[in-house]
Structure formats: structure tokens, C-alpha cells
Design a protein around this nucleic acid. Sequence first.
DNA 1: TGCTAAACGGCGGGGGTCTCCGTATCGTAC
DNA 2: GTACGATACGGAGACCCCCGCCGTTTAGCA
Lengths: 194, 194
Amino acid sequence: MRADAQRNYARLLAVAEEEIALNGADASLEQIARVAGVGSGTVRRHFPNRHALLAAVFRDRVENLCAHARERVGRPDTRAALLEWLSAVTTSAATIRGLAMALNRDKAADAEHGHCATTQLAEAGEPLVRQAAEVLAPGVTITDLIALITGIALATEDHPDPAAEANRLLGLAVTGLSPLDGRIRRPEPASGAS
Amino acid sequence: MRADAQRNYARLLAVAEEEIALNGADASLEQIARVAGVGSGTVRRHFPNRHALLAAVFRDRVENLCAHARERVGRPDTRAALLEWLSAVTTSAATIRGLAMALNRDKAADAEHGHCATTQLAEAGEPLVRQAAEVLAPGVTITDLIALITGIALATEDHPDPAAEANRLLGLAVTGLSPLDGRIRRPEPASGAS
DNA sequence: TGCTAAACGGCGGGGGTCTCCGTATCGTAC
DNA sequence: GTACGATACGGAGACCCCCGCCGTTTAGCA
């Protein structure tokens, strides 16, 4: 890769990050080119489509989350290990503008490209789910959890405090919105009352 | 309202519904105008912005859901009443293309316009939540439930069977992904096994 | 220092949104 | 039945964006 290409690539990545933080996942590519001081063709050469740009911008963040997951595998308290990681993912997805949408989108383009962000996250988180299977509701997969998290992040996008709200909703989903179900009982059957 | 205006309004609504079903919430307004056989100005006169169009297109659906909620108020099994309604909302949000996104977007523009779809839904569903408070996790509000549902619907948008998947995720969130929490216990501690 | 492949920039086509205004049409009053 | 005013219509124009393409510049090597 030529030196000027490297420069432009780095510069574009930095500008894109800012621009996406400012205007969300569908920030203007032209605008990014303009701010970076390069032609629009250069953007498209480095990143053939928006998906590629998003993937590149969020790569580090996603890898951090993956690492975060890996270092939690094998912990004695499997439930806490999983929940902490889920909370971390939720916080990132809710805080970093555009990340949730990026994750949501590439689920669609997942089949073709192979190693998208969601797949990476899923692979990294799967061991945590497996080792916590005992304390998980039957049928829960890592894919479900990621879907739920990205959904929550999308839904809390324009909340005053997205991270807090998203984590609160995640907590509710984890312990159950209405856990009573025959299989699972409430703490006190509360004799009588309405 | 003049007769031709009424005709165009109805026609636009019908075309918009199809077009949104086909291309999602950000279907082209120009395209809608073209298919309806009117000028683009006419679209923008009847619906100043995309939000207004979406609101109009989904008005009936949302009102149905509201009615659905109202007729469930007062039922003996408050939990079932609420859960059935939540499931109905989830199915609609997941099935009707663009609805989830519309619900998600107008939460933002809610403050200014006053009576958006989400507010309507919230007002209609609130009694169901109140009367089921006993069997709900503490702190759960109707707003939370709607946020969660729209999130789930957004996240399952491009699944082969969105309604089924969305309802499954909703079910998991209702009974709890990992209900064990001190307050709530699992059915069988499952002696041994993997 | 010269050459070549790689990277650059920006033009042109297609499409979308939004505003505005001249014109056609409806509904009514006579 | 006609004439008129209000109302709605249609589309042109300005602006932005995405995308593909190609002539030109430049980095890196011999």
C-alpha cells in the first residue's frame, strides 16, 4: 500500500468516525470526503460501500468487545461473566452512535461477506453463553442476545441517557419483565391482594 | 376539503401503504407521487414530512391495537391480558414493514407533535400494565414495553419469519433470559448434567 | 533520474428532498 | 347556467447524495 494511500485511509477513518458520531450511521460519504480533503472517488476506492466503511470504523471497538469476552471465559461465576459482557456490549452499542445500526444492518449482509461484526461478536460471546447455559432460559442463543441488545440500543438511541436506559432495559429482559410462568415463581406468592 | 383533494389523499395513502410495504419506511416520496399519478408537490402538501405520511398510513393499524388493548382491560387474568396484547403489538410491528421504524422515529418528535403513535399506544396500554402490576417486575412501565417491542421488531426486520422470531424474543424477555437473581429461582436446580 | 503502476480527483448521470409559483379546477353565489 | 374566488395541482429549479468512470498526478523502485 502506497504511503499516500495509507495517509488518506487513516485520515478518512478518523473523519468518518467523527462524522458518524455526529450524524449517525448514514452520514454523507461526500461530506466525509470533503472534510478529509480528498475526492469522493478516494473514499469509494478505500471503502467500496457504506458497510465497508462502518466495519472499518467500528473494527477496533468490536475487537475490544471480543477481547473483553475472551478474557471472561472460564470465570467461576459464569452468570456474572456473561451479564457483565452483555452490559458492556449494550453500553457500547447505545453510546457509540451508528454502531447499533451497523450491527443491525450487517446481519443482513452477513451471509455473503462472512466475517461481519455480528459474527465476530457472536463467536466471541458464544463460549460465555455455553458455560452459562445452566442459568439461562432454555433456547437462548448468543444470536438472540445480540439481536436483543442491538434492538434495545436502536430503541433507546434518542434517549437523554442512552447507555443507562439501554442497560436498564437489558436488566429487565434478563431477570424477566413478568417472570411468573408456571416454570418460574415469584419470591412471595403474596397471599390475597387483588 | 375539496373533492379532488380527498381523492388524491385517499389515493396517496393507498399507494404509500403499498410502497412502504415494499421498500420500508424510507420509501421514495417521488416514487409514491409517480405511482399515484400526482405531482410531487401534492404529496408534500398533504404530508409535510415523512413522519406525517407514516403516521397517516399506520393510523388505522395503531388504532386497532389501541382498541385491542381497551377491550382487554378488566379481564380477570391480568397477566394474560397484557401478554396477549404485547404479542399482538409485536406481531404487527414485526410484520408490517416500516411500522417499527415509524414508532421508533416519532418517539423523538413526540414532544412537539403531542399525539404520535407511540403516545397513543402507551395511553391505551397503560391500564393493562397498571392492572398487571402485581405480576410485573418492579419498575416496568408501558414505555419500557413499547421500547422493547419496537427494538425487537427492528432487530428481527430481515429475519425469514419476523413475527415468529420477534414473538420468541419477546417471550424470552418476558420470562427472563436468565431469571436467577436471588429474588427468582429456576424450576429445577438440575442435579449434575453437563 | 526516469519510468510505471498505483492512487488521486472530479466530472456526469441518476435519483431524492424541499420550495415555490403559474395554472387548472372545484364549489358557490348569483 | 355562468362567473368568480379560493383551493389544490403539477412541475421546474436549487441543492445534495450515491455511484461509475477516466484523465492526471505521484510515489517508489530501478
